[in-house]
Design a protein around this nucleic acid. Structure first.
Lengths: 305, 305
DNA sequence: CTGAAAGCGCTTACAG
DNA sequence: CTGAAAGCGCTTACAG
């Protein structure tokens, strides 16, 4: 309060009469803050066709940001070469970066970012990074899935992902965890990398002689169920299928999909809280946070034939 | 090009060396444009818990905006008294306003908006408004639903909505269309306005002696199915239920929900295109646009008992 | 307690 | 063809 209340009241009255609004863009320029957080999807294929996962993620982020008076900007289709440039254009106070890659080149880029970054669904790279990483326990999730199948008598397993996702961090983590877990138990394993849209998948799978398939996402599992139906392979009696995420989508597949659940909304909300603290200048005490997974058993898994 | 190519090249090189980025906030201030569109939900209850409808809407808007180089900001939880103020803070070039009310007070507010507004899921008010209105053919949708039930032998119908939605524009339109359509055919009708979460709904419904219920959204229909299951009323053998929207949600209910489909993603994309044209200064040739509905028959409707 | 100036980083119109 | 100034609408630090 630098002005007498009387005068202030008068100014307020005039402002109201003239319909005055403070211009937030000018304020943002002056303060070098925008009260706006970006959510970056490197390849958002459409919110509605894409995994429901994305919706839960946005929901978690939005719940925190709106509560704290921040705005949320959706970022997608940004030129990959210029992501940092886009982040540094002054319009965002921070960014939540989905499935942030962790190759050295990207980590070097992150280092140059003028705004804080929280990665979601990516474990921290071993060689350090300036971002904070929020992820689920992919290893634990895979163990739950394998254990469930093992107890049903399965001994030959496949892990499935599409070739274009070969570098997606949580895909890599799930694949590696699968490899390790299954080799330990059964001595051998099959990793099936398939072309986009699972072309030729049925032949690839039968070559592995597996009785159970773990797909790295529920979306992919749903696609697989369709291919298997076309090929007249019965799920779960001939083949058990497990997915990852366990959103409502798993209720819409035929049969309903057994899936590992990650608490995506909680993860997203945590990421948002953490980011706002970083924006406020607090140093994050933890560099990475891992949320546990659970397993939702539905109808796509059964005892091995 | 105001500078020789040689000099320009030199400047580019220096800019790159210094890691120069143009500051978009300063540019926005100078140009009074931000290349950002807002999507306003007056009461977004959560993206993930809420109707899938919202996701499709965002998807449709985002597909157009990203393609045209615009950013998308999510607006929710804005103080209702100050919505126009928030819109006029300079941060948005235009806004897509979900379920925009059409009372005279709101229309007067719209008139004061410094940025163009496109309303979605609201028909244009009869007394004129500065916004462009994009909606689906609620009347036609209701007719499809009633006709379907009529052909199944139903003669006593109820229409259901929650009291807090009494002023939501598409709720009103569906209710009025229902009233008109059913009175014409059957001579009488029942409109059931229920408290939130459908408390006491079963008694209310049985008092109407109806054999079929049309719910104004699929979300509400899903809730009703749960209440009916608890009360041991079988759907569809004892009571037929129809919802509105027909997203993937209808596949997850038990039984699967028969629903009127509105092409929400197309409507949202159209709204975004229209808004960008308005932002570019083109006058919209149409003041309102209506998309037709269709009916997806699933398992929640059957011949009248 | 109050007023006037400087400056955030751009773009545009003007002068040379 | 190029440079320098004005101004977008704020906030902050300074002077009175």
């Amino acid at each position: 309060m630098r002005v007498s209340e009387e005068r202030a009241e008068h100014i307020r009255a005039v402002a109201k009469r003239l319909n005055y609004r403070v211009n937030a863009v000018a304020r943002n320029l002056r303060k070098s803050k925008t009260q706006t957080i970006g959510v970056l999807f490197e390849n958002l294929k459409g919110l509605a066709d894409g995994p429901l996962y994305t919706t839960h993620l946005l929901d978690g982020v939005a719940s925190v940001l709106f509560h704290r008076g921040y705005r949320l900007t959706l970022l997608a289709g940004i030129d990959h070469n210029d992501i940092i440039g886009s982040l540094g254009d002054g319009q965002l106070d921070g960014v939540i970066w989905c499935k942030l890659a962790r190759d050295e080149e990207t980590v070097a880029l992150i280092h140059k970012s003028p705004i804080p970054i929280v990665a979601i669904n990516a474990a921290a790279p071993s060689y350090g990074s300036d971002a904070v990483y929020v992820t689920c326990d992919n290893t634990g999730g895979i163990e739950l899935a394998v254990d469930h199948l093992w107890n049903l008598g399965h001994r030959r397993f496949s892990f499935l992902y599409e070739s274009e996702e070969v570098n997606t961090p949580d895909c890599v983590d799930r694949r590696d965890a699968f490899q390790k877990e299954v080799v330990t138990r059964a001595g051998k394993t099959a990793i099936v990398e398939c072309s986009w849209k699972l072309e030729g998948i049925v032949d690839q799978l039968s070559a592995t002689e597996c009785t159970a398939v773990i797909c790295w996402t529920e979306r992919l599992a749903g696609l697989l169920l369709e291919k298997l139906r076309d090929a007249k392979i019965e799920v779960p009696s001939q083949l058990s299928v497990i997915g990852f995420d366990s959103t409502q989508f798993c209720e819409t597949t035929t049969p309903r999909l057994t899936a590992v659940r990650q608490p995506i909304r909680e993860m997203a909300a945590f990421a948002a809280e953490t980011l706002l603290n970083l924006v406020a200048g607090e140093k994050s005490d933890q560099h990475s946070k891992v949320f546990p997974c659970t397993l939702d058993v539905r109808n796509s898994t059964a005892p091995a034939a």
